[in-house]
Each structure stands twice: as C-alpha cells, then as structure tokens.
C-alpha cells in the first residue's frame, strides 16, 4: 500500500513536470519575442533576453523555468497588470480563493444531491419518479454550461430580479445560487446517472439477495449494502468532475462577473498575456493532477481488491 502511494505520487510529480515542459515548449513556439514592441531596437531585445535568461540554450532555460516554478516564481505579467508578479496577481488578490470556494461548493452540491437522486432513481426503478429523474439527468448532460448559465441569468436575474445579475465577489447567499447551480448541474446529473447504474448493478448481487432473505428492510439494504458498494465508480469519477468544474468555472465566472481565477484566465487568453496563461494552466493542472492522486488512493482504500497499478488491468 505504501509502495503504491509512493508510486502514484512519483507519477503525479512526473505528470506535473511533463505539463510544465509542454507549457514551456508551447510558450517558445509562439513566434516573436515577448519584448518585441513597436519602439524596441534589436539591441534592447537582446539585452532583455540576457536579463531574463532567454539567450541560454533551450534545455537550460527549461531547467530554470522548472526551478522557478517550483520556487513559486511564475514570472511577471506582460499586459494585463504590467510588471506585477503573476504569483501576487493569482494568490494575493483573492482570485484563487474565490475560485476554489465556488468550485468546492459546486462539487459538494453535485455529490450531495447527485448521489441520493441516483439512489432514489434506482430504488424506484420503472416508476414515474425514475422516469422523470432520468429524463432530467439525460437532458442535463446535453446542455452546455455556458448555455445554462446564460439562460439562468436571463430568467432569474434579468427578467425576474430574484438574484443579482453580477455576482461580484460572492458576498451574499443570493449571489451564490445561480453560479453554483450552473456550475454543478451537469455533474449533478452525471453523478446521478452513474449512481443509478452502479446501484442497479449492486442490487443484482448475491449479498443483496442474502440480506433480503434475512428479512432486512429494502430501504435499509439500499443504504447499508448497495450504496456502499455502488459508490466506488462514483468516487473514481470525482477526478474528472473536478477538472470539469475548473473548466466550467471559466465560463461561469465570465457569465456572472465573478472576479475569480477562471475569468482572469479567460481575459488573459484574450489579451495574450502569456506568463499569466502559462502560470494559471500549470496551477490548475497541478490541482487536477493531485486531486486525481487523492481519488486514486481513496479508491484503493475503499476497495482494496482492485489492483489499479497493474498494467494488465482491463
């Protein structure tokens, strides 16, 4: 078990290094020098190159780049907040915390509502409740986040001023409702669908029949026996869910005017402020990779029978 965890951590670190390398080479693939402006002379560019170490061979640059990133030095913004260190922009200005808060609440909502809905759907299989829940969740996974976010905004914030149009820094309860709903709905539906499937799987197992034969109440069987065993595939899905919520936050934060990391990332892309794009990509990637790591380890703890590390796994 210890070896397994060490191996996974090693692999996660390797992945992070690969991501940094990819990002580095992509940055280098951009034509033109970052110091190229209308006024700059070739000498100035050369001086700037020497100052920032861009005259060294690519591999040396890559090494410096990785070392800098590990130290937490993400470079300085080129356009959006010219000269400001990217680290300060991301962490000191509350952007990161705001996004994390929004993301975690959405994740929690998707799990807390999605799993019971899946259970109810499986428990009431074939009834109109199951039918309704399935229709809603099937449609839910076909609506793009930005469409849902915009429609919610129009319906509940513009036409019926129940919620604020601009959620701002999420200071009141009301300002949370629409962003969290639009961010979590897709994953809520998706988790509900998965839970239903794996629950139905579990219900057909022998131990459920045994429990039934012993006279245990159906509701209790679902909670005590079926749910526990059907949660495994749902837990593995949490990694992709988090990655998706981060992606969704780019859209949701832009739509609701939340000054978080996602919105800033989108703005930096539109402004082509490369150091910010790079740093944000790496930070979010690290977040996703390490969540996946935690999920994998949790998975192993929940169900030790499954040998994830085996390459013969199908």
């Amino acid at each position: 078990m210890i070896w397994y965890i060490i191996k996974r951590i090693g692999f996660a670190i390797l992945t992070v290094l690969v991501v940094i390398t990819i990002v580095f080479f992509l940055m280098n693939a951009i034509p033109g020098s970052p110091f190229l402006t209308e006024k700059s002379t070739p000498q100035q560019i050369e001086l700037a190159n020497i100052k920032y170490g861009l005259d060294k061979p690519l591999l040396v640059q890559l090494k410096n780049y990785i070392v800098n990133y590990l130290k937490g030095d993400f470079g300085t913004s080129l356009k959006m907040q010219e000269g400001a260190p990217v680290r300060d922009i991301i962490f000191r200005q509350g952007k990161f915390a705001l996004s994390i808060k929004l993301g975690l609440i959405s994740l929690a909502l998707a799990v807390i509502i999605g799993i019971p809905i899946g259970c109810i759907s499986a428990y009431k299989r074939g009834t109109w409740i199951d039918g309704l829940l399935r229709v809603v969740s099937t449609i839910g996974v076909a609506v793009p986040t930005f469409v849902l976010a915009s429609e919610l905004l129009i319906t509940f914030a513009v036409n019926r001023t129940w919620f604020p149009v601009n959620s701002g820094s999420l200071t009141s309860f009301k300002s949370y409702v629409l962003p969290v709903l639009s961010l979590s709905f897709y994953y809520l539906c998706s988790i509900a669908k998965r839970t239903r499937t794996s629950m139905l799987d579990a219900i057909n197992q022998d131990y459920i029949r045994t429990a039934k034969a012993k006279g245990v109440k159906t509701r209790w069987i679902i909670i005590k026996h079926a749910l526990r065993n059907s949660l495994v595939p749902v837990v593995t899905y949490l990694g992709p869910v988090l990655a998706g919520i981060i992606t969704g936050s780019l859209v949701v934060e832009s739509t609701f005017g939340i000054p978080g990391l996602g919105r800033y990332f989108v703005q930096s892309i539109l402004n082509r402020d490369y150091p910010i794009i790079m740093a944000t990509t790496v930070i979010l990637a690290v977040l996703v990779i390490f969540t996946n790591l935690l999920v994998d380890i949790a998975y192993k703890i929940i169900d030790p029978r499954i040998n994830i590390s085996s390459s013969e796994e199908i």
Partner: peptide
Amino acid sequence: LIYSIPEVLIVLLLQVV
C-alpha cells in the same frame, strides 16, 4: 501520462499558441 493531464487547459493553450 496524457490521461492525467487536464486536457481542456492544454487545449486552450494550444488554441492560443
């Protein structure tokens, strides 16, 4: 390795680059 890279972020980067 590729599986554990959050692809959407790289996609965005690729689109820009």
